[in-house]
Design a protein around this nucleic acid. Structure first.
Lengths: 213, 213, 213, 213
DNA sequence: TATGAATGAGTCTTCATTCAT
DNA sequence: TATGAATGAAGACTCATTCAT
């Protein structure tokens, strides 16, 4: 007897509850600072239940990583306009990333905090492929049209993504419930108005100027 | 009876060995993923010895953080040319940061990985102040002279530092002995030549164009 | 969902097993001489289990102390005859203490060994209050009636309790399973019959004569 | 070449310094609470030096125990009047013990705190013999003369010594530097004047009445 | 299927003891 | 002989994981 649709839905709910609880706890306290029973409690399930859905704590964090990465990449790339001009394509990517951050700051911070983590498995690291492929294609094409500077794509991508992340870190308050502190970010004493809102269009224009031909 | 110079040198050596071993392990496996006895083993000392030099594992990571931060800030700001024009000042900062990364990749990655860590104490966080102050002053002055875009300094700083970090992550291989994995970095399939060398002057020019007026 | 009665009973059993094992080990080897895993082993539980029932080793020893102190004080003072004459009251206290020692030698020795311990918390020290109050009242009243010597109550109490303890130590073998060694007790070669039984009535008469008017 | 007398004296000084430092630290913080290097520091010697005079920390505490026990027994028994009457002999013993406590409270407390300790070796436990023998002889002789009650000597000795200790604990403040708290001592709220001085003659009279025929 | 009490491996840290100087 | 830096075994405690219910 296969499980009823209702039962399946209940199971999916529980899985989601666990992932959601874990996501926010990992952002708040980090992977090592979060105990599995805490996740269970916040998710409203028993500690043992988590192991019915995930093989281990590491499997859980990898599942979240992959899910968020996918969500990010869908948010940015779905219905990407392949034939728009480069300026427009760049704006689309940038503003969609901005939208993603505004909608799901916790998820974005999670990706940021965990991308270098030793407990990510090979598969998690590989999830980026789709996004990568599209972007590389776009850049290469644009370079061929002499609309972008001719440097190594890897460098341009790093510059843009890094700039986006740096602006986010420096200008957005920490994700709610987090005490994360911006980075090498040379902040600390900056007092130019309250954090919390970013002029994304201005930021986009700046970054565009960095890479345009 | 004060200790002999030889004994002092030996102690300093040991302290350095411990900090060096800890630095590379923290970069490889993270703070929580690294056990104190592992550090001891890599440093070639007994586990207890670490506690003759550092009060606790946290004190150790903070000592490393402060040392690297200081080293970075000295490398970038010592003999900074206060009267050079903005273009030149930007180049100086950028190229010095590049030099620092080339000379001490592990230290740079360490700072990157740990700046938001919950185990950093107030003093560690305060070490950034000197750097911050100088940079804010430079930016504000340059904006007054209409040589930089008029956006919020926090945003410009985030953009520049983020770009620098993003380029580093994306174009440099992991620090030797490290398995650090690039970030939100959209890399993975990029095949534009081997990682490991960066055209820093090109990168500098790009980033300058992002912020110049 | 509240735990089933059976589960509660099992938990109480486990708690008791831990306290019992700890009590006898503390008596045998002292608080500092006893390792937590030893307690666990003797109690037949895992080492971690102890921490489900007691916050720390100190919390455990305090729980035992309070439990034994309470038991002692109940054994001595419950249904104390407030209107009996002093001679009779003294006999009641003495013989009840004797009964307690005969029934629960380990507990008595534990109290003896731990009453001055630095790891006892304020609450543990406060448990003595009830007993204290009653006894002070009894002594003061008896002195007013000229049935006891007129010296400081503190001295009389110390004399009586000390005598009781000294007799116990000197005449009772060590608690079963214990290697406790008698004190300043000037024993060693005494050969007046086997240890292990005390003529409590005789001892009581002696001690009474020490304090009666 | 045998060591010069001066060297021997220096060695003896050092040994004494170590034992003195250890004695007071053991009384203050207990055996387990005292670290060997602390003893060394208070004694003004290097940590390693202690091991030139004592095989181990246990050997040290046993040496102190034996020394204090011997000192106590000499203080009480040297020039004991074998032919005085029982009343007088009792007074002598009692007042000499009192004198010892007044002169050397730390030593007395040390003996009290350590007599039941698991780290005392057989030899330490055996040191009591001399005192024991004399006292047993005295008691037996006195009982034969019908000057003492006819109970078991062990009981009478326990009563007397216990009473002495109980009075000491209850009426003397803790040894200077100690936080030792009186025992099963039913104290706590007693307010009959400040602690710190004992009417030893009164106490002696009380205790005598407990055992006289 | 879901639970959470129980577990014990592994953590950081202390400290008695050694030994090169 | 005296030292004190170095050691590593052992301690208290945490927490990912299991399994009886």
């Amino acid at each position: 007897m296969s499980p009823s649709p209702a039962a399946e839905a209940r199971a999916a709910d529980k899985r989601d509850a666990i992932m959601g609880a874990a996501l926010s706890l990992f952002v708040e306290r980090g992977f090592w600072g979060t105990a599995v029973p805490e996740i269970a409690e916040r998710a409203g399930v028993g500690a043992g239940t988590i192991y019915r859905y995930f093989e281990s704590k590491e499997a859980l964090v990898n599942a979240i990583y992959r899910a968020e990465k996918l969500r990010f990449s869908k948010a940015v790339l779905d219905n990407f306009p392949p034939h728009a001009n480069t300026r427009e394509q760049f704006r689309v990517i940038w503003m969609r990333m901005a939208q993603f951050v505004e909608d799901n700051r916790e998820g974005f911070v999670f990706l940021e905090l965990h991308h270098h983590a030793s407990y990510l498995d090979a598969q998690s690291i590989a999830v980026e492929t789709r996004m990568t492929d599209v972007i590389v294609a776009v850049i290469t094409a644009a370079q061929a049209r002499r609309e972008l500077k001719q440097g190594p794509p890897r460098l341009l991508v790093g510059l843009v993504m890094g700039a986006f992340i740096g602006i986010t870190r420096n200008c957005l308050g920490p994700a709610p419930g987090t005490s994360a502190v911006p980075a090498l970010s040379i902040e600390g004493g900056l007092t130019d108005g309250p954090r919390g809102s970013i002029d994304w269009a201005f930021a986009e224009q700046c970054t565009w100027e960095a890479i345009r031909a």
